[in-house]
Write a protein that binds this DNA or RNA. Structure first.
Lengths: 143, 143
DNA sequence: CCGAATCCGCTCAGATACTG
DNA sequence: CAGTATCTGAGCGGATTCGG
């Protein structure tokens, strides 16, 4: 299991004594981002969201269906993504020892909730897509 | 501007003729993930969420406050993250030509909405943290 | 105080080839 | 059909140094 090691967040508790006191509000706020990073660590990586979204829409998905449904993904990346999601308890993998073999993936309950939350992010993206686009153009012109 | 180029999503329209027909449902579902990837592309990168969360809690934040508030971040990465967020129209940067200099960052309206949505993800993470943790341990033991 | 510039290691992710 | 294995380039991100 050499790759896609889900990176060790970094914003973890490896703090550097922020005990100057007086910024308790700040410290309190930062503590909230730790679990968030855990989420994004496992949702990041260019393909995980595609897998989650696709599975959320199809209920049960086979390996080949992912390959066709997610344009541009390689066999390797699909496998890696699938394994990580399975490892994190977001996807269940069922192998049928038939000929030819058949493997089915489906979301766990936890992942179904996640998928719904992710859809809210999609909504945000759709609403502000133009704004972001315009901001970039403007920024790139002036810098 | 050589780094943190916000990566070109990859799940873009560079499709490979998925015109087999019959899987319109799938194709329809995948089209929804494109904007989502745009969001995550700019929110990913290990530090962006920390910046957004911190700024959301503090209203207005100075450069040095970020450094102290986000344990482990380097000057370089902070600057890069800040610039990207500014470029995407999520952060405003106000420089006061005083001595010593003073720079203030605050969220745009769009970013404030995003921050709220991200907090929902945090909630999810908190609720399922234990489950994910347990799943990993179990997975690592059997593989 | 707020950065910019350079050097460099590490991981991610693509291409390719092989297996049960 | 559903993977695994190996090689490789590209870019992220850390440490350090210099400037306004």
């Amino acid at each position: 299991m050499p790759e896609v090691t889900t990176s060790n967040s970094g914003v973890g508790p490896d703090s550097t004594g922020v005990s100057d006191a007086g910024l308790d509000g700040v410290h309190e706020a930062v503590r909230h981002i730790c679990p968030l990073n855990e989420v994004l660590d496992r949702v990041s990586g260019k393909w995980a969201i595609g897998v989650l979204t696709l599975t959320g829409a199809e209920e049960v998905v086979r390996f080949t269906e992912f390959e066709r449904g997610i344009p541009g993904i390689s066999r390797r990346m699909l496998t890696l993504t699938l394994r990580n999601l399975e490892r994190d308890g977001l996807l269940t993998r069922t192998v049928y020892a038939t000929v030819p073999p058949r493997t089915e993936y489906r979301l766990t309950e936890a992942a179904q909730e996640l998928a719904q939350t992710l859809s809210l992010l999609t909504d945000w993206a759709k609403r502000h897509q133009a704004h972001v686009q315009a901001s970039r153009v403007a920024y790139d012109e002036t810098h």
